[in-house]
Design a binder for these strands. Structure first.
Lengths: 217, 217
DNA sequence: GTCTATAATAAGATAGAC
DNA sequence: GTCTATCTTATTATAGAC
């Protein structure tokens, strides 16, 4: 590993630049030339270090995701220790979002950029990009799904799956920075990009959705 | 207007093909060659009829959206006539989703493909594509926002905006066909692509989210 | 309006010197 | 590991015959 003047090696510089650009422009619209220019490295370095643009994308995700997943699982484990007789839906949602807030505040681990990238991946049309997440993320989801099934015993397992799916959609969409808010011509929601502010309004919505009565008239 | 053997003119054939391909692959990854090949028209026809790929995209959206918007507004107007003293959140959500279900069942107006395309637009990284929707969709949103503000008088206008934003995110995500469901290794949600089935499970979730107490402890 | 042919450009990937 | 130079292939868009 050789180092450049700003203290990061070439592969890391490429990952950092790619992370930002993939969020901003999506996979297809981000060229290797944009990435290497931003990273101030040679064009050929991408293929030397990663082999292809697609593998680079996987690298951008996986470098951050593994430790983050650990944190999510650990957070749930701790919550379960503190309340061994089962968690409320509220505590489950709060536990799920706590690592996200911590990550959002920590630029060294990608910060809000990585949160937004995760949200974006689900919307990537590229099958190979979208399909990498189930593999990388299923452990976390299964853990939280199990907790929810326990917390909502009156709902069937299928209904919990539906609601978890909606909840994930809501959360990812809220963090994606797509600014559905901008749709509203008036009343631009203030603080719509601040993760802490988002979560404050998001938690009641998601908790209420998850705990909704099984079938209103 | 000259017509080909299957009864549709060239511009329409291009729009039909582009609609499907933009949903499937996104804007960037869909080439004019894919479109003209699928439409069985000449490559140059796109630029003759539309001028550019971006204008074509706008054309795909706007041909369907104007009549659909009319329907959404009319649905709300009718509901308000039937209940002149104000609508429940439940009726508002139901009114909003009714045109979507009708459209989803009507392939002649784009069917589920167009619903999914709308959902996808919000996730398009291209600014110029994402930014066309506020202009085209704000009337509908403002109408439903006003109804929600009336139905939820105890919430501030800002809070209603937040929740409408979350609700729209949930709904669009649910229809986008991104299959967050596939994240769950087990328990693949059955019927996850059938609009009627989606709506059945979606309504209680969204209504509960919108009517959540203002700030649970 | 529709076609062929092509211009102009940008993309991902690689070979080979250093 | 890093560079320059280039290959190969794709793209959007257009010019001009019919």
């Amino acid at each position: 590993m050789s180092f450049t003047d700003n203290g990061k090696d070439t592969a890391t510089r490429i990952l950092d630049a790619a992370e930002v650009l993939f969020v901003e422009h999506g996979f297809e619209a981000t060229s290797l030339r944009m990435i290497t220019q931003r990273a101030a490295v040679n064009l050929a370095a991408v293929n030397y270090h990663f082999g292809s643009k697609e593998v680079l994308f996987q690298g951008v995700i996986s470098r951050r995701l593994a430790p983050y997943n650990q944190e999510c699982i650990e957070e749930l484990r701790q919550a379960l220790i503190d309340a061994p007789h089962g968690l409320s839906v509220d505590s489950i949602v709060a536990a799920y979002l706590r690592p996200a807030i911590r990550l959002a505040k920590d630029p060294a681990r990608g910060g809000i950029i990585f949160i937004r990238l995760m949200s974006r991946v689900f919307a990537e049309p590229h099958d190979s990009l979208r399909d990498m997440l189930p593999r990388l993320y299923s452990d976390v989801l299964e853990a939280y799904r199990a907790a929810l099934v326990k917390a909502l015993p009156h709902l069937g397992s299928h209904e919990v799956s539906w609601r978890l799916q909606f909840a994930m959609g809501t959360i990812f969409y809220a963090f994606a920075g797509n600014d559905v808010a901008r749709l509203l011509s008036q009343n631009n929601v203030p603080g719509a990009r601040d993760p802490q502010e988002i979560v404050k309004h998001l938690v009641p919505f998601v908790v209420a959705g998850l705990t909704a009565p099984n079938r209103p008239a």
